[in-house]
């Protein structure tokens, strides 16, 4: 399985559109779901997946086939999703007028979280949500989370604890 992934990665790096499409067919939905949970916004999730697949051939130049390709791809998506959010926030801070417009635009293109899970996750600030999603739903280890988010394992553990505590409080309030 890993060798198939590595072979796919080599072909994508060589510029094969077919290989890229094959990867999208096999992993796109899973990556999109992860992007959605991290951003809780359909437009952001779609943009993240788009950026990852368009930028993948060049990004693969830095992939040295060490460890799992699927894990590497997941880390790439997580970084891309969070970086997009970070850049947006910076832009918003620079231009208050843009912030208003962006908020309006966002509310128009992305559905507000409807399910109980999404509503719960929306309670969490982004930094806590990322760790809770990656640990509790994706089942990643703290080491993997630390590597993906560029934080220490201790920070990952602390954020998970805080995130779960906040979820606990929310559930308790709702009865």
């Amino acid at each position: 399985m890993e060798s198939e992934s590595d072979d796919l990665a080599r072909r994508i790096r060589a510029g094969s559109g077919e290989a890229l499409e094959a990867l999208y067919r096999s992993a796109g939905a899973r990556l999109y779901a992860l992007a959605w949970r991290l951003t809780l916004n359909r437009a952001d999730a779609e943009d993240t997946v788009h950026d990852v697949f368009v930028g993948l051939p060049r990004a693969l130049e830095r992939y040295h086939e060490q460890g799992s390709f699927a894990a590497w791809l997941k880390r790439l998506l997580i970084r891309t999703a969070l970086m997009r959010r970070r850049q947006e926030r910076r832009r918003d801070a620079r231009d208050a007028a843009y912030a208003v417009a962006a908020e309006l635009d966002r509310s128009g293109t992305g559905p507000a979280p409807e399910g109980e899970a999404e509503r719960l996750l929306a309670v969490l600030p982004e930094v806590l949500r990322a760790v809770v999603v990656l640990r509790e739903i994706e089942g990643m280890s703290h080491g993997e989370i630390a590597r993906a988010l560029g934080i220490s394992e201790v920070t990952s553990r602390v954020r998970l604890m805080r995130g779960l505590e906040r979820l606990r409080r929310t559930l308790r309030t709702e009865g």
């Binding site: 559109g17 890229l20 999208y24 939905a29 999109y32 949970r37 779609e46 788009h50 399910g115």
Partner: peptide, 17 residues
């Protein structure tokens, strides 16, 4: 996964490429 379905992402990717 609970994510809303998406259908046009691959077309966007292809167009960008």
């Amino acid at each position: 996964d609970g994510a809303p379905s998406t259908s046009g992402v691959w077309q966007r990717i292809e167009a960008s490429r």
